[in-house]
Design a protein around this nucleic acid. Structure first.
Lengths: 110, 110
DNA sequence: TATACTGGTTACTATTCGGTAACTACAAAT
DNA sequence: ATTTGTAGTTACCGAATAGTAACCAGTATA
């Protein structure tokens, strides 16, 4: 997120929302989980995301220390991503969101 | 969020992100907490938010069943908001985010 | 008479975000 | 000689989001 009022807030909670409070980042973190995964796999697994947006989000996640990026000097190139300790520590929160949604979501049948 | 790919996803986790995965909603839910609070108070307490955006977000939170809105037929008008059971059940997740951030955030001194 | 009060709404504009399609590098295989 | 493969980048455009400022109702107060 570029919003400086969030990223530079003096409230730590607001800053936290600044790093993970958008639609793609929780999805990406959840898909990576505990594995090491390549860019192309992420692009294939995550529905509807474009390579451009995926690149941007991965870059921000890396800057915020949730993600580790390992580029191998090969051809064709190979780049692997995995969650850092900080990223892994966020997984239980995503699990809690799943449980919360399962319990309270109102499903309307069309 | 208007993105139908999130709100109508067949993945419940993706739908959950569709309802709370933006920057203002976690902030608003956190500020309300367990109390009953008026529109003007929210506007005054939450930094940088505008009345327009606050109105929109409150409306969406109500539609998604996280929030209850009570309007009193008085003059000047009085409208009170409080979290529903679903909204209250989300508070521990926000607490977990605070703890997570506190533990892992890298603070850079300027 | 004019102003304040509350909880909005409206019209307009600015900014940010997201999407599409084309393009890159370099080696290996066909 | 051309195609395939990976992990992007770039330019451009449109959509979504957010911000600004003015305005509303109807009573009470100055």
């Amino acid at each position: 997120m570029k919003d400086e009022r969030f990223c530079n807030s003096n409230c730590p909670f607001t800053r936290a929302i600044g790093t993970i409070g958008n639609k793609w980042k929780p999805i990406i973190i959840n898909v990576i989980g505990t594995r090491t995964i390549r860019f192309g796999q992420l692009d294939a697994i995550i529905p509807h995301i474009t390579r451009k947006v995926l690149t941007e989000q991965l870059k921000e996640l890396e800057e915020d220390g949730l993600l580790e990026r390992m580029a191998y000097k090969e051809l064709p190139p190979r780049v692997e991503y995995k969650l850092s300790e900080k990223g892994l520590a966020f997984l239980p929160i995503l699990e809690a969101i799943k449980v919360w949604n399962l319990k309270y979501e109102v499903v309307t049948m069309p």
